[in-house]
Design a protein around this nucleic acid. Structure first.
Lengths: 340, 340
DNA sequence: CATTGGCACTCGAACGCCGCGAGTGCCAGG
DNA sequence: CCTGGCACTCGCGGCGTTCGAGTGCCAATG
């Protein structure tokens, strides 16, 4: 019973602090929430909460603010993901359905997420190795240069240039093209690795070089992590809210946001579309991001995500709402990619 | 003679102010530059310069800072573009040559520009209508859905999905593909408009629908300005230098940087690779960007630029150096795109 | 007539001081 | 276990003062 009230107090503190951005005192707490007890009682509870390390006071004689641990407790046990309003849902569908392009889809998703959460949004492009091949195309540029274009079911297009030691005939290109497509179309590249490896042996000895090159390029494409590092960041203007808060200078934040590799590591482990990862303050495994939290999830059909998306914002954020938005955008994005 | 010294004083003021970010007084001026006159004389000159609106004092009893007009004079008549150091040039080539992709090239260019100038860098993707077609590809997705892939000489790849009213045979697709390529390959899309328009007539009546659709998609691609709005922004961390200056809050800046359409308009008129556009402070045609200057130029082979690139930074920037970097990056980028 | 040293003046930034008030912890009584 | 009362703490904002960089003006000088 008492334990329950203490948690109610914690919840109230988190909510008030998130709303007002100011340390919350015992008096204003009882005024704004129906706790049914006096400020003095709340003060006792607060002392207990502080003892447990869930809240802290910036300086003596000031109200309390939640600690990272406090937020963690709030997220895990005192709140639940807030579903979007009907209007918001409609806004999502209309906005995302207007996209023509994968680039466009990703772009719009970032904007959307940034707008909904009023936070910095991050969306990773679908990872090459996790989506299936729709088509492989070979285009002759000059006699000894081939352009290899890889089109994936997610709409992603990769291109590589192959430099051949000697010219190749159009017929040979056509044959190679059809064999390549036979080997990989409809599958994920990883799953087609065997078929690809066997491919050169299907050709005459003197024709094998271009085949091997093409195969090598495809294999390189899936193992090249640099192309998985493609992410788009949006809503950086929302960083302004950090500024007028306190401490955290935005410099390191902006730097971190430019380090796409770092960002991916931060979003990273949220590879399953169904789970929502929340990292709070010190739980964020990156120094430059003091005072920030990250909410991320995967997107894509099935268990294994095509990629991840999420937001980064101040620790004092509206977790239920943000989590709702992130989840929603991930779902709609999954749907769009699955259809398109 | 006297006039000359006045300009020398202006130049000294600009240089000192850019270096120190603090209003510069008559005494420190004569100390740091060999003007050969006393502070009192400099004060007289300063009074004259102020009279002409080239410098101003933030408050009485403070040093002078250049006005926009003062910077303008400095850029136009008192300075010249500073060429890069050998090390910098080498850094550029090694960095840019490592790129595999158009995306990669653009990405690297932005980083480079941001690093060299310590400013926010902006690079526009090559405009579709200004580069020539390397290849058009058609891929059957389902019976009634075709994927049209347009590969341009700059390395840019555009894709559109065509929804057909009724299924199309593989042969018909092959024919259409070859005819399309005949019509447009090697030319800029704008120049191929006629050939494209004539294309449907070359087919049997009942086969024309897909042809028209494909043609329409291509025409749409060049006239769709949304796909010309593709820009990449980098080095936003350099915005931090605005902050500790004064006035200018970064909020509107970040907002402007997210408005790619606006950015393009700002870079916009620099369509010729050979000219360098500099807009200073109030000359920048956008409200949100008080206290900023823009240095931009076009890139690409020939007179008409493929696209534009540039930087935006505080009015108090190192113009000669920045202009040198912008020009250099544009040149190298032009070269890379021309070769690749 | 341009230049210069001298001098009084201005005014913002920095500093220290003080009072206010929100908020706390503790205690004794219900 | 809750509550009202009370003394205490301490950050914030307002105010006055000092300090000094920098100015404008003037009279003297080559």
């Amino acid at each position: 019973m008492v334990e329950d009230r203490k948690l109610a107090v914690l919840r109230a503190i988190v909510e008030d602090y998130v709303a007002t951005q100011e340390p919350v005192g015992s008096k204003s707490l009882v005024e704004r929430h129906q706790l049914g007890v006096s400020p003095a009682t709340v003060r006792n509870d607060m002392a207990a909460l502080e003892e447990e390390g869930l809240i802290a006071q910036p300086h003596t004689s000031a109200g309390r603010i939640p600690t990272d641990k406090g937020y963690r407790m709030f997220v895990d046990r005192l709140s639940q993901v807030k579903p979007l309003s009907v209007a918001e849902k409609r806004a999502i569908t209309t906005l995302l359905e207007g996209a023509v392009d994968l680039d466009d889809v990703v772009q719009r998703s970032v904007r959307l997420l940034a707008q909904l959460t009023r936070q910095v949004a991050i969306v990773q492009y679908p990872v090459l190795s996790r989506s299936s091949v729709r088509h492989v195309e070979l285009v002759t540029l000059t006699g000894t240069r081939l352009l290899l274009v890889l089109i994936l079911s997610t709409g992603r297009v990769e291109q590589r240039i192959l430099e051949l030691p000697k010219p190749i005939s159009d017929d040979a290109v056509a044959l190679l093209r059809s064999r390549l497509n036979q080997a990989v179309t409809g599958q994920r590249l990883v799953d087609a690795a065997e078929a690809l490896a066997a491919l050169p042996d299907m050709f005459d000895h003197q024709d094998r070089t271009p085949v091997s090159l093409a195969v090598a390029a495809l294999v390189a494409a899936i193992s090249d992590h640099r192309s998985d590092e493609r992410v788009v960041v949006g809503g950086t203007a929302n960083l302004a809210q950090f500024g007028d808060g306190f401490e955290v200078s935005i410099r390191p934040l902006l730097e971190a946001l430019e380090e796409h590799v770092v960002l991916l590591r931060l979003l990273g482990e949220a590879t399953t579309p169904s789970t929502l990862t929340v990292r709070i303050g010190s739980e964020v495994p990156y120094e430059g991001l003091g005072g920030t939290s990250i909410v991320a999830t995967g997107y894509g059909a099935g268990d294994e995500a095509f990629g991840t998306l999420g937001i980064v914002g101040p620790t004092r954020m509206d977790y239920p709402g943000t989590m709702g938005s992130v989840r929603a955008v991930a779902r709609y994005l999954s749907k769009i990619l699955d259809e398109g």
